[in-house]
Write a protein that binds this DNA or RNA. Structure first.
Lengths: 130, 130
DNA sequence: CTGGTACTTAACCATTTGGTTAAATAAGCC
DNA sequence: GGCTTATTTAACCAAATGGTTAAGTACCAG
């Protein structure tokens, strides 16, 4: 019996991270942090067709990371705050973890530095299973 | 003339965001923030085959978000600090933007609150461009 | 060596993604 | 209306993603 593959549309956090997972799109966001830009302005630095950029913009829009206005034949794009904040808020819940983790690593490296190099104490053998 | 589609392997930041773009994988990371877990432990809460979980773990591993050890027949998974920090570091460059942005929104909403509702002052017309 | 438990690999499939080119739409300009 | 500029839509394609089942591998225990 073959199970159904329900095509569930992802939640917004997922769409945000997915949108951020592409260098072209991150470059577009970086450009937009300098203010509103038209599609052709955004496309200029990229070696890519206009429709390709248009698709990237649609991904960014559907994630909420940008909003598009209308000004004559231009569709100015604007960076949006909320999804960025939501993404960082989700990541923040791990801050304690990574800070402690990198701290431990730092102290370990210092310890190595303190001792003369090339020491290879036999008592360390077989302690991997800790 | 058809252009070549060079299959470029994405940079680590892209792989990290891509890995975070799936709810199952985010749930796995959340579980791992409580400490090392075996594959079956991680799989238990999900209505999904073991191979599917195994694939998710491979994605997480290739992004650097987890590391896998070996303990008899178990492959304990461990959360890793660096990619999380890298992701948040990238997002932090937008903090000023989203704080100012949400601040403006907050002040605007307060202003609305202060005035009696339904007022429609003609003098406000055309001030959108500020 | 046999069997069980933990996990991965292989093969398959449908959907999504990221690009292309060509055609369509929208708005300003003469 | 007719040309130009800006942008999107359509149709197509290859590759990646996320799931499946079935078979393989790795290790421990008796």
């Amino acid at each position: 019996m073959v199970k159904y593959q329900t095509p569930m549309s992802p939640d917004r956090l997922s769409r945000t991270f997915a949108a951020l997972a592409d260098p072209t799109r991150r470059a577009i966001l970086a450009r937009l942090s300098g203010g509103e830009r038209s599609v052709t302005e955004l496309a200029a630095p990229h070696d890519m067709s206009l429709p390709a950029i248009s698709k990237h913009l649609r991904v960014l829009e559907r994630s909420g990371l940008i909003a598009r206005g209308r000004n004559a034949q231009w569709r100015p794009c604007q960076l949006q705050a909320t999804p960025l904040k939501d993404a960082v808020d989700w990541l923040e819940q791990y801050r304690r973890f990574w800070e402690e983790s990198l701290d431990r690593l730092g102290r370990y490296l210092e310890e190595l530095q303190a001792k003369p190099a090339g020491r290879k104490p036999a008592t360390e053998k077989g302690r991997r299973g800790r």
